[in-house]
Design a protein around this nucleic acid. Sequence first.
DNA 1: CTAGGGTTAG
Length: 459
Amino acid sequence: MSACVSGTTPHLGPKTKTKTKSLSESQSQSRQLLQNCTNFRQLRQIHAKIIRAGLSDDHQLLLRKLLSLCSSYGEMDYATRLFHHGIPVAGGPHHTFTWNLMIRAYTSNARSHQALLLFKLMISRGIPPDKFTFPFVIKACLTSSAFRLGEVVHGLAFRTSFSADIFLQNNLMDFYFESGHASSGLRLFDKMRVRTVVSWTTMLTGLLNCGDLHAARSIFDQMPTKNVVSWTAMIDGYVRNQQPDEAFQLFRRMQLDNVWPNEFTLVSLLKACAQLGSLKLGRRIHDFALKNGFKLDAVFVGTALIDMYSKCGSLVDARRVFDQMEIKSLATWNAMITALGVYGFGEEALALFREMEKMNVQPDEITFVGVLCACLQTNNLSDGCKYFEHMTKRYGIAPIPQHYSCMIELYDRVGLGMLDEVGRLVNTMPTKPNPNKVRGTNTHATANIGKHAEDLNCL
DNA sequence: CTAGGGTTAG
């Protein structure tokens, strides 16, 4: 199979028609091929074939298929060129779909700025937006923090009949809450004539994110129907407010309501176990997850388990879960490295970090909190300095207060007579250290670690 | 003809 597709500039091919095959025939063939397309390489081959075969008037359909595939492969540069070559300049109402598709594609590929530019172009070209356009654009405003523009778009939609659309209203509520204008979000919610469970849950999480647990609970109690997302949002609200008992109470009520938990629910409950330091409860959740077919490779659950075990005093179980996970995320590595460091296995933590590097997983600042903590555990000042430099020079990661705390503590313990070095380090800090926080990086339930000392001997 | 939203780790 030839991998080489001529040229990198995509377009939708010659205007002249082929004589060998009927157009509808080759078009349905291309459609079939696109249906089974699994990667970008294949896509380019199919695209080349489409160009060779020529296209009928109905080529918008193939264009859309190509565009949505590009979007799912993250190939937005290719999609952009395809779009601008393939979209008719004049445009008409039936092309709105294609523009919407592109706007959404940019946003879901972290290019919401381009999504907004395209929306402006769409308006200036006179392509009429429809009820799908506005929610997509509001989403783009949210992810690119374009608050003023969001307000303008809201106003624009308000002058159309689309402002009554429930999706747009939910989106706008979310937008106002997320950009710190809770009162606007609240007003919108109050004015809504029809509300879905999503409207209520958006309201609920909006209030939780403002830190208003009471108002959130009141909304929760007023909800006409609740689903697993609403229950989980409320449970997680209690966890975030350090009320694990309340979280579990709610979980029991949820089960009485015959609502089945999902991965999100389990993650929240595991966080609650960690707060309680209850290994017993944590193991029960773990058993529950295994019995009910929740995969550890659903990375979030696996990582939450590692964190729970480590905070509840069982490093062995944490390590076991880690080793069982075939798919690991950056957070998974971070959780395990941090756990080893906290338990005093500094060498093992550093070994794991090197293994992570070998697997080409890019570390972040949290990774280095774990790494520097590990150096602190082994009182190894030279390692600490080495990794501190490794972090800033090799990875270009800017130090955060916890890094400085670790380093200062290290100098303090090991580097007697190195006061000059400490002073130099402090002077490079963007913000001055908070003495109360110097030892505050360890959130583990330290009291439990002693109780499970036998676990440590197994390592 | 075909689309869209709300809860996730350290």
